[in-house]
Amino acid sequence: MLEDMRIFATVVEHTSLNKAAERLNLSQPALSRRISRLEAELGVELFRRIGKRLELTAAGQLTYEFALELRRFHGSYLQKLNAFKSNEAVAVTIGASLTTLQTTLPWLITAMTAKHPELEIKAITGKSHEIASLVKERKIDFGLVGSTVEDDPSITSVPLFADHLMLVLPRAHYILERTHWEMADLNELPMILFTPGTWYRTLTDDLFRRNGVKPDIRMEIDSFEAIVRLLAASRAGTLLPKSYIRPQLLEDNDLYVVNVRGLERTKRTISLIHGDLAWFAPSVRYLIEETTAMFTRVSREPKTPS
């Protein structure tokens, strides 16, 4: 069908079978047979023959418009594909909020570079509103943030997956048999929390305030890895996003997760944000589309990206 539409569009644009046949390097009888076969397949007449001149029927005009759209779509596809066949490296700059930098970005970069070894990735970090500003200023190609941007028409937010907080404790200092906690049990619990100013810490503080909880905050650190490594030594617990918690991380640091009634209500949507896709090279537009599709596939599985 694609080849037939290409031939049909060429005939329309040359207004005669002779000129089109010459352009297509076909004999006129062979070209006539191709057009007749297409008309038979579609069940309509595409041309009225007026002497040596061809005139489109209404059905022919509709088919020509479709052929042009098909040509445009096919050209766009080949352009995107060629971006990954080229010997030149494809570069993309990603912005990540402080939390997604540690929870989501490593997984994404691993997946993208595994599929596209030639890809050059640059990452910029900041608070969610700073990442949104970088998107608007076209200083980054797209951003990963722990929220959506709904009040700015120049930014498109694509939800990727839902995340929520979970209580993590060191095995050596807490009774393992007690697997279900209430929010009130966090009162005066020694805790290490993330540095204030991020969506994650704001969510944590709002949670404590709503439930009247006052934990014993021992440290405030801007690294999940450092928090995890300090829990056992400090005999403290922490609240971590589900997307960061992996079985190997718990095993390596002798930690475990307990269910706390109410934490499931801390759900937060992790989003990809970008500006007008017309700004970008085809290869970058393709990466944005591919990234969205990648998270869509993973979100259908039991575990979120980690």
Rank of each mutant, 00 (worst) to 15 (best):
E45G: 10
E182G: 08
L193P: 00
T15W: 01
K122Q: 13
L38S: 01
L203A: 12
L108C: 10
F73E: 15
Q61E: 15
P302A: 10
W181H: 06
A20S: 06
A9V: 04
L160N: 04
D206E: 14
R6H: 05
I140G: 10
T204F: 03
L203F: 03
S157N: 00
S271T: 03
M1G: 01
A40N: 13
M1L: 06
K139H: 11
N187G: 00
R261K: 14
N187T: 03
S32F: 10
G212H: 00
V260H: 08
L165P: 07
G212I: 00
E120Y: 11
M219I: 06
H116D: 07
L189K: 02
N82I: 03
I109M: 14
T15L: 05
L207N: 02
F8C: 01
T99C: 09
L17D: 00
P282L: 04
G95E: 03
D185H: 09
L108K: 09
A162K: 14
S36C: 05
R268C: 11
D252R: 13
G51N: 12
D254V: 03
E41C: 09
S234T: 13
Y286A: 12
N259G: 09
P106S: 06
T15A: 10
E177R: 14
L230W: 07
A281H: 14
L119E: 10
T113I: 14
A91I: 01
K122E: 14
L2N: 10
I288W: 05
P159N: 07
R300I: 03
A226G: 00
T266M: 08
L62F: 08
N187F: 00
P190G: 01
E130P: 01
R6C: 00
E120S: 13
H116C: 03
L250M: 12
R265G: 07
A9H: 03
T125H: 12
N25E: 13
V213T: 06
L240G: 07
L144E: 07
Y200E: 14
R33V: 12
W279Q: 05
R72I: 10
L17W: 01
A278S: 12
A132F: 04
R246H: 12
Q61K: 15
A40W: 00
P170D: 13
E225L: 10
L101D: 12
E45Y: 10
V213C: 09
I270H: 06
R229N: 13
L287V: 05
K52S: 15
K122V: 07
V168W: 04
I245M: 07
T198I: 08
V11E: 08
D185P: 02
H129A: 12
A21K: 04
P190S: 02
D252L: 11
E3Y: 06
E55P: 01
W107T: 09
E290P: 02
R297L: 09
R71M: 11
E177A: 11
L26V: 06
N211Q: 11
F47L: 08
E182H: 13
M166N: 11
L176A: 14
T93H: 11
T304S: 13
D206L: 12
E22H: 11
E22A: 09
R72C: 00
Q79N: 15
A162I: 11
I192R: 05
T57K: 07
E88Y: 07
S157T: 02
V298N: 06
R49D: 02
K136H: 07
